[in-house]
């Protein structure tokens, strides 16, 4: 492995191609076949696979291990890393370890609070926040040093991702936060699932006005809906999600057996719109436990073959 080669995701984005990534949640167990199966479904359709780190605070196979399984299959992983479960010592150590395994992309997050998960009795860490984590990975890459200033023997050179949620409050602060993440060292941004296109466009305009879309690659997040119930649930129960009423009505307006088809249609329309927005450089498909649909979405969007 060439330690200094850039990641494929970085290459595609810097060439100006429209990138496609998808999400892969590791299993609640040690069975690598689950990861491989998901990898097979995504292979050829995406540029990189984003592997979650104990998402929704439910204990799962580690992101690093699942990334490593994907690497062995020839897929490029984006390792998610949350600051909820590890202090700065563990975070830095795992970043070095991940890079030594060939993982070249990282998505820096704070993580869902443990009270949402399967083990709410757990102690959280939050030694540093996602902003600090971004800066830490950048310092490792650019200066070859860890947080103490120690010169590393083989610094990890990760392509750095961060999250942005244009649908959370306070809205006017969301672009300031994006700017801070870019200053801290984010190379690419993955957004929360986009259903409220008006608000997303407004946020993008603010980002463009601040010159931010030229400094970072923004990947719009999409999640195909399976039912009106799912639309309602996401809107009401999932923190930071915004599914506008007309979309919920549209999902509810079709017969149950047609709901999946309608959800896919909405997803394809969203992707088509995203491709037209100045400053959006890719799409991130989060088909939660529905990886088999990703290929269909990418194909129907005319985004195949991948480079």
């Amino acid at each position: 492995m060439n330690m200094n080669a850039q990641s494929r995701l970085q290459e595609i984005l810097s060439k100006g191609d429209f990138a496609v990534t998808a999400e892969c949640g590791p299993p609640r167990g040690a069975n690598p076949e689950v990861v491989r199966k998901k990898g097979e479904l995504l292979k050829g359709y995406v540029d990189a696979v984003n592997v979650t780190d104990n998402q929704t605070a439910i204990v799962r196979m580690s992101s690093i291990a699942a990334c490593s399984h994907l690497l062995q299959m020839g897929l490029e992983p984006v390792m998610q890393m949350v600051t909820r479960d590890r202090n700065r010592i563990a975070l830095q150590s795992d970043i070095m370890g991940a890079y030594s395994l060939g993982i070249k992309n990282i998505l820096c997050l704070s993580g869902d609070h443990q009270s949402f998960g399967s083990q709410p009795d757990a102690l959280n860490v939050f030694d540093i926040d996602s902003m600090n984590l971004i800066r830490t990975v950048q310092t490792m890459r650019e200066q070859g040093k860890d947080m103490s200033g120690f010169e590393l023997n083989g610094p990890p050179r990760m392509f750095i991702g961060a999250a942005a949620n244009p649908f959370a409050d306070p809205f006017e602060y969301r672009v300031i936060r994006l700017a801070k993440k870019i200053d801290a060292g984010a190379d690419f941004i993955q957004t929360q699932c986009i259903y409220n296109m008006d608000r997303f466009k407004e946020w993008m305009k603010m980002a463009r006005d601040e010159g931010l879309s030229e400094k970072v690659h923004i990947l719009g997040g999409v999640t195909p809906m399976k039912s009106a119930g799912m639309a309602r649930f996401m809107n009401n129960k999932v923190a930071g999600m915004d599914v506008p009423e007309p979309l919920i009505k549209r999902m509810a307006g079709v017969p149950k057996e047609k709901a999946i088809e309608e959800g896919l249609k909405i997803c394809l329309e969203t992707i088509a719109e995203l491709r037209e927005i100045e400053g959006v450089h890719g799409v991130h498909i989060m088909a939660i436990e529905w990886e088999e649909i990703v290929g269909q979405i990418v194909e129907a969007s005319g985004l195949t073959p991948r480079p």
Binding site: R84, H113, D129, N132, A168, A239, G240
Partner: peptide, 25 residues
């Protein structure tokens, strides 16, 4: 709830914290 020093997380909605709608963000 996450001891964030650099701004609100994506779970801040209508001025409330994602972990408890009774808690101010």
């Amino acid at each position: 709830a996450k001891k964030l020093l650099n701004g609100p997380c994506g779970g801040s909605q209508n001025g409330k914290c994602e972990i408890n709608p009774e808690t101010d963000c």
